[in-house]
Design a binder for these strands. Structure first.
Lengths: 355, 355
DNA sequence: CTTAAAATTGCAACCGATTGCAGAAACATT
DNA sequence: AATGTTTCTGCAATCGGTTGCAATTTTAAG
């Protein structure tokens, strides 16, 4: 437990003022080169470490960003976190990360903690049961930039980073139609969440555009878990006639659904073509490999933090850039290919054609 | 941009001293009940929020834990993070998370940041190329508890949380032997890392225990990536005679290895039995389902944070509890079953027998 | 050699909460 | 009524950097 070295100690040692030491350490232009060097040397030699709190207290800037995420243990979110941390770290920002575990209650508590920790900016992906975003009011009224990603609030003037879920779902569904599917089931997530609501919309629009009637009972709302995939598959197995296509709102669920259907003797894509969403690694492991919408998680995290920091640095104005939409694309693999590709056949299925 | 409310404002409003306000807000027993109530009411009404920095500066306790992790975008690590965040959050601690991206250089920089941020404790899983742990010296000398998990330093008196990799690998290898394998290849990770070094050891010991000669060229050192699995498989395909068992140090690599072998016409487990490590979700998707060592990531994260907090609270003494070893177990699935189980056959392979 | 301009340095007042110690007020005891 | 206890409150110093402004030193110009 050695004593902590402060700028005062360095000042005393060099017989100069703490002011100069502080400026020197921060590379302030108004400090003589030689003095600076002396300060750096003394600091290194004495084992000085800056006290971030004192600095933050005074500067009212924390160089810290907060993140509130539904869960950390999802493939998508961990990609996002990795991207966020990378950019934040490079820019000299710390990241305080917390999970809402899909409950509004925890989200509210976390928001409060973030606020008291004086984060310079906050990144949020909403929980399942978040009904409103009143708990972020303090951030708005204090002018702390708040950026939503992926799970964003609806009808609000919030800065957000998303993909075009409607379009992506439209493309996915259209792809199934083009493969000859006429009875397409959609396994959806919680429809209170914008992401899943939009995917449902895209699915509907695509049917409409191809003059296929929308059937209420073809939409199965689930929590998209592995278990849910099994249950959905069982529901589907009882449909008569059997559907010939399924568009699932995530890959985990799609994969367990496929497994269950295969066990029941259904051929994929022969009997039923399947398309998932997220392009998780498991898409390339299930047999047949799963067609899925590639969802750039890492990029989303990077872009989110970059935007926030740019705003904080006054480079750009997030409040004007209201929504950033990232590109997503359908990666076609065997699970949806009823017709052979006209192009030279994809080889190992690893990186099949795009649409 | 409203003005920030401080305890001084509340004090003025109520015509009492800031001291009493501070005590009141912290529920100090020496403050009159009525006064407390008045303070709470005023605080709520005026929109007061505590300034964590001022508090930390004074208290020298931050209620913040730092985490340095190789990468966030791995299934195992995201489980660990989720577990850590959960426990930390419940105990009122913040988590500052940073990635070393497997480089010692970043790990050193991150350690320094954590130190300057005055984390109350630090959790670390080492990077690939970390050669020594000198960069954590400031933590030792200042008595800041430091806890390593999974990727821990060797021959050091550091508190660490691990599984018994030697034993787990021994069990896995023994299982292959019991299935009749005699020519067992081991696909390993970077052998500078304790985890992989130990798994190799366990593999060797098991061979020894069954009087099977260890062959240098049966150990393939890789980075355990998907790509590495393909390359390792190709190496294996050129061996003559072909091995009849493979023990891979992680699942990702095992799965891509299996895929490649299958494409080459090898039957799994008929020709070659395979065992992986981690029990990732993909083990249940690949066909045949992959036998693997269940590795309790979430639990590891929870235990790690809980130990640290207990120590900080003076409940336990981590410096005495030098190593915590978590239980791991082999989950047997089809990929390694050359012989049928004698017990009633496992049904869907979802949760097959244990050894 | 003077004087003005430029380059450095330092004083002192913050930032906002916490806490040891002393003093005041309220209550209890002869 | 006097004294001893308890219960509450407040003073003032402290945590360790940061920064506006003034003071001092150096350099340049006349």
């Amino acid at each position: 437990m050695e004593k902590e070295i402060t700028i005062y100690d360095i000042a005393r040692e060099l017989s100069i003022s703490p002011t100069t030491v502080s400026r020197g350490l921060n590379n302030h232009p108004a400090v003589n080169k030689n003095t600076k060097q002396k300060i750096f040397d003394a600091a290194a030699q004495m084992g000085y470490r800056s006290n971030a709190f004192a600095s933050r207290l005074r500067k009212q800037r924390t160089n810290t960003l907060g993140v509130i995420v539904p869960r950390l243990d999802s493939n998508f979110q961990s990609l996002v976190m990795a991207g966020m941390e990378k950019v934040a770290n490079e820019a000299g920002y710390n990241l305080i990360i917390s999970q809402s575990l899909e409950t509004a209650q925890k989200e509210i508590a976390n928001a409060r903690t973030m606020f008291e920790n004086r984060v310079d900016g906050l990144l949020v992906s909403l929980a399942y049961d978040t009904e409103n975003i009143d708990h972020f009011e303090p951030f708005f009224s204090k002018g702390i930039p708040l950026l939503f990603y992926d799970r964003v609030p609806e009808n609000k003037q919030c800065t957000s980073i998303v993909i075009n879920n409607i379009q992506a779902a439209h493309t996915a569904t259209t792809h199934l139609v083009e493969q000859g599917c006429q009875r397409i089931v959609h396994i959806s997530g919680n429809l209170r969440i914008n992401v899943y609501k939009d995917r449902l919309k895209g699915y509907k629009y695509a049917l409409m555009d191809h003059n296929i009637a929308f059937r209420e009972n073809y939409v199965i709302e689930t929590n998209l878990s592995e278990q849910a995939g099994v249950e959905a598959a069982n529901k589907i197995l009882q449909m008569d006639p059997l559907p010939d296509g399924i568009f699932v709102a995530n890959d985990t669920c799609a994969v367990s659904c496929i497994k269950t259907l295969k066990q029941a003797g259904i051929s994929i894509p022969g009997d039923i073509a399947v398309v998932g969403f997220n392009n998780d690694p498991i898409t390339r492991i299930i047999e047949p490999n799963l067609t899925s919408v590639d969802y750039p998680g890492g990029e989303m995290g990077e872009v989110a933090v970059r935007s926030l920091i740019n705003y904080l640095d006054g480079v750009s104005d997030v409040s004007i850039t209201n929504t950033i939409t990232l590109r997503s694309e359908l990666v076609v693999r065997e699970s949806s290919l009823k017709k052979k590709l006209t192009a030279p056949p994809a080889k190992s299925g690893k990186a099949a054609g795009m649409v």
